[in-house]
């Protein structure tokens, strides 16, 4: 009788505890962010770029002089800040996901075979990674902006340049460890080709590491894009990138604090959520990464 009661209780507990440990708030914020980006035209009360010079620098609605037509106020050109923050989510996500996708894929494609084959190929790769890690990417971003002009592609290229060696180093290290394991030797004995071993046996074992690394790198990519845009060498100005918006309010902060405040909060919440999620994933999936 007692046993019959205890068993379901334990089972329920097993289910409940992981649920409680899930970082609900960061996940909710990220979900909200993705939805905001997808549904921006529906959610935004107005246009992100339309100027209305008669309504310049209106404060947020709850401050004296504000109106609910512009809940978070307007900027120097009378553009609605809420709409700009909402559309900004699109730019932030699109740039960071594309850059992480391209950079991560390149890092994996280079490091997976190199780590598995070892020898001279591997040595060459590690040299390239060391060099790539010691190039100050932000300066390359500035040069790119001056020579070819600031553009989405330029920002993505700079982040790719920043990200790929980090993926390559991580993937190579993991591959070295995995290829020593028994099941790889068994696969070889069973006659699997190199390609099959890499794709079917090694790659799936890298997925936890890649998940952890990506969640942390997306945050870094968002900050990087925002920093470049803030400096004027990232996303070109009329576009509502969060970094551009913070820069718009730079010289007005003493009189019109809301212009810079809200896009900054958007960056803060996004990156904080990604970092918390990344930390949680790391503790769950890959305790070895804890020192990184």
């Amino acid at each position: 009788m007692q046993i019959a009661i205890r068993v379901p209780a334990a089972r329920v507990k097993r289910l409940v505890v992981p649920l409680r440990q899930v970082p609900v708030l960061p996940l909710a914020i990220l979900l909200l962010l993705v939805l905001t980006a997808l549904l921006a035209p529906v959610l935004a009360p107005g246009s992100p770029t339309e100027q209305n010079l008669g309504k310049r620098l209106l404060p947020p609605a709850w401050v004296g002089g504000g109106s609910w037509d512009y809940p978070l106020g307007t900027d120097l050109f009378g553009r609605d800040i809420l709409s700009r923050v909402i559309y900004g989510a699109r730019i932030s996500l699109m740039i960071s996901m594309t850059a992480i996708g391209v950079g991560g894929l390149f890092g994996i494609l280079v490091a997976l075979p190199a780590g598995y084959l070892g020898g001279r190929v591997d040595m060459l790769l590690m040299r390239a990674v060391d060099v790539a890690l010691s190039i100050p990417t932000i300066l390359i971003g500035i040069v790119l902006a001056v020579t070819l002009g600031p553009s989405y592609e330029a920002v993505i290229s700079v982040i790719v340049l920043f990200v790929w060696p980090r993926y390559a180093r991580q993937v190579r290290g993991e591959t070295l460890a995995i290829k020593q394991r028994d099941f790889i030797a068994l696969a070889k004995i069973a006659g699997s080709s190199r390609a099959r071993i890499l794709i079917v046996h090694i790659f799936p074992n890298l997925v936890p590491t890649l998940l952890v690394l990506s969640s942390l790198q997306v945050g870094a990519a968002i900050i990087m894009e925002a920093t470049l845009s803030f400096l004027g060498v990232g996303i070109p100005p009329p576009a509502p990138a969060w970094g551009v918006m913070v820069a718009d309010g730079k010289d007005l902060v003493v009189s019109a604090w809301w212009v810079s405040l809200f896009p900054g909060i958007a960056i803060l919440l996004t990156v904080l959520s990604l970092n918390l999620l990344g930390d949680w994933l790391r503790d769950r999936l890959d305790p070895k990464l804890r020192q990184v």
Binding site: A226, T227, F230
Partner: peptide, 22 residues
């Protein structure tokens, strides 16, 4: 440590100006 790594320094700078200079 956790909060600090999510605050972009360029934004922090502007908040500092608002508080300490403004």
């Amino acid at each position: 440590g956790i909060l600090g790594q999510a605050v972009p320094p360029f934004w922090l700078g502007i908040l500092l100006i608002w508080l300490f200079a403004g």
